[in-house]
Nucleic acid binder design. Structure first.
Lengths: 184, 184
DNA sequence: TTAAAATTTCAGTAATTCCTGAAACTCTGA
DNA sequence: TCAGAGTTTCAGGAATTACTGAAATTTTAA
């Protein structure tokens, strides 16, 4: 439960970045600590390691659970909750993408859909409605694409990413028909 | 310069979402207003439409400029600054991705690289160093992949996204060699 | 070069978010 | 059912962030 300088650096950095990522410093630090800890930690371990109040840690852990970024474990003969960050970093990444989308994108998608449905689109709203429509289409396309990629086996996805811009070598002009068919 | 109910709804929503996106309500609202406005607006138009203070609008516009999300224009015979959101939504999207990456990802990449370089990795840091290494690799891979995609002509990128999970049809096991070669 | 228009800066205040300690609550083994 | 370990809630204070109006600065046309 000692925090080495290397860990310390990582923890402080993720704490700082937290605010840019929509989580607060405490939550960022707790996650960082769990991420670099080989063994599961209980709340008091975290309090001791990071110098935070017990209640703050409790709230932070709750938020991390709502993000599905930590796992709860129990040790035999100890009834305290022990927490870990999942081992598989690709799984972590996937959860992060899903959660951010749920919080940052989906509400806007819903709002756009509803607003465009309901409104009768007067002349003065024509431009606005078109712009909102464009935004809606872009979000739909990119999120459904992400869904598709997330559904691929991890190995395939990594392979695809390593291929990078070269995917298009397989994409000849004649494929655009296939693309349209596949996309519908 | 009147704000219809449709625009109003959009503006208020983007204002609310702003806080989840690392910008404040004011900035979100200003951007939303510009996005649905057919014509360029000056700062006073914005003050009047949104009921904000002049200085707040000034600061908000400055922040939007730092995000490269608004364009500055001038009208003949008027020396005030007029602002618009770019027309091309894919261009907007690209800028957004670039800026978020610059603010949210790059600092962490740098920190990880530096920390892993410098530290001699004692025994007790072995696990932490491995975890940080894994995170570093994941970020490198995904950002360079995004770079690759961003570099594609827009039409190709859209085509690819519409293809969705079906890209893998072109990706036979034998391609993994090509993938490795292409990725290096 | 000047004056007026336009914009930005900045110090102070308002609002929001974060964090804490104390109290309430939950759970489990005896 | 009770005791005590463990956890969560919550009100209030601390810290941060957002917003305003006034003053300073910049810009441009005459």
């Amino acid at each position: 439960m000692n925090v080495t300088p290397l860990k310390q650096r990582f923890i402080l950095h993720l704490g700082e970045m937290g605010s840019r990522w929509g989580i607060n410093r405490t939550v960022g630090q707790i996650y960082a600590l769990l991420y670099v800890s080989e063994n599961a930690l209980n709340a008091d371990d975290i309090v001791q390691a990071l110098g935070l109040s017990r209640s703050n840690v409790s709230m932070g852990l709750k938020e991390l659970q709502s993000w599905r970024l930590v796992q709860l474990q129990h040790q035999p003969g100890d009834r305290r909750d022990y927490f870990t960050a999942p081992e598989d970093i690709w799984a972590i990444f996937r959860v992060l993408v899903e959660e951010r989308r749920k919080r940052e994108v989906d509400p806007t998608l819903t709002m756009l859909r509803d607003a465009l449905m309901e409104a009768p689109t007067s002349v003065e709203d024509q431009y606005a409605a078109r712009r909102m429509q464009e935004m809606h289409e872009l979000i739909e396309l990119s999120t459904s694409w992400i869904d598709d990629l997330q559904a691929l086996p991890q190995k395939t996805a990594v392979q695809l990413m390593k291929l990078g811009g070269n995917v298009t070598k397989f994409l000849k002009p004649s494929d655009s028909a296939k693309a349209r068919k596949a996309g519908s």
